[in-house]
């Protein structure tokens, strides 16, 4: 008894943290530098393949390959800022289009290369499973939950308790004041792009083992990140968690009770409905409203 309900609860929670982890990088970059990194999904996908390549073509052990991937993708994010975004900074249209172009280029490159078969899977970090409330959950998912929560906590500490983090947040709130106290805007944005991309890589490596690597996940991940970020409002960790919980549970509930395909409709609908009804997000402040509207 209670099988469906328990499964909804457990998997809703797991799914929420998965979404949280997926969105963390996008939200961090957006919150800190105002750049909506539409290449987020592409970088996520890239991380999966990069890690696979490092393991199977270079022969690195998994932990090393994973660490190298996170580092490399982080550097790539920073490089995207220095080479592409810096010259169009402030022109929102060009920022969106150029990151979008980078993302599409990455995703379609892998589609062309044909990396779509069962051969390209990443190993789970841990094997086995455990029963929670009578629902079988594998350790990988539990590890992801722990990782997602830990990273969220660390990020909160980073942005609220460290000098660098506070400087970055200051930058995002008032660029002129931050400039006048000696924080350099391009440096801050480079860092935020790099960190956001590295987080996309962490998410990719941790989450891709849950299934086979499919190409369209590059676009799905971007949309999920958009949904969660839009729903929760920017710059607030609470909002991000709330957004993940709502979208996460909504997906599992519709998947379990309405039909498995509907869960994909849900987060897309969430983006549209939230932006139409309450553009500032659920916890948004008026400043954000001004930016969006």
């Amino acid at each position: 008894m209670g099988g469906l309900l328990a499964s909804t609860l457990v998997y809703g929670l797991v799914n929420s943290v998965v979404l949280l982890l997926t969105s963390l990088g996008f939200s961090l970059t957006f919150g800190l530098s105002g750049v909506a990194n539409f290449a987020h999904g592409g970088l996520y996908l890239l991380s999966g393949f990069l890690c696979w390549l490092l393991m199977h073509r270079v022969g690195l052990p998994f932990p090393l390959a994973a660490a190298a991937t996170v580092l490399l993708v982080g550097l790539l994010g920073a490089a995207i800022y220095r080479t592409v975004l810096m010259s169009v900074r402030g022109i929102v249209l060009s920022e969106v289009i150029s990151t979008f172009a980078v993302g599409v280029a990455i995703v379609e490159f892998f589609r062309w290369k044909g990396f779509t078969t069962y051969d390209f899977t990443l190993p789970a970090l841990v094997d086995g499973s455990v029963d929670i409330l009578g629902v079988t959950v594998d350790w990988q998912r539990l590890l992801i939950v722990a990782l997602g929560l830990a990273l969220t906590g660390l990020l909160w500490l980073f942005t609220h308790r460290t000098m660098v983090g506070l400087a970055l947040r200051g930058m995002s709130q008032d660029e002129y004041t931050a400039l006048s106290v000696g924080i350099e805007s391009d440096w801050a944005a480079t860092l935020s792009l790099g960190l956001g991309s590295a987080l996309a890589a962490v998410a990719g490596i941790a989450l891709l083992p849950l299934g086979i690597i499919s190409i369209n996940i590059g676009y799905d991940v971007l949309l999920i990140a958009l949904a969660v970020t839009v729903l929760g409002g920017l710059e607030s960790t609470t909002g991000l968690i709330l957004g993940s919980l709502i979208v996460g549970f909504a997906m599992v509930i519709t998947g379990n009770y309405v039909g498995p395909r509907w869960s994909e409709v849900v987060y897309l609908a969430a983006i549209v409905i939230v932006l139409a009804v309450k553009p500032s997000g659920l916890l948004g402040k008026s400043k954000e409203l001004e930016d969006r509207v």
Binding site: F38, V92, L93, L223, V230, L268, A269, D291
Partner: peptide
């Protein structure tokens, strides 16, 4: 009412929806 990034985002999501 949405501007900039947000309008781009919505037009990206709508056809997929």
């Amino acid at each position: 009412r949405l501007r900039g990034v947000y309008f781009g985002l919505i037009t990206f999501a709508l056809p997929l929806l």
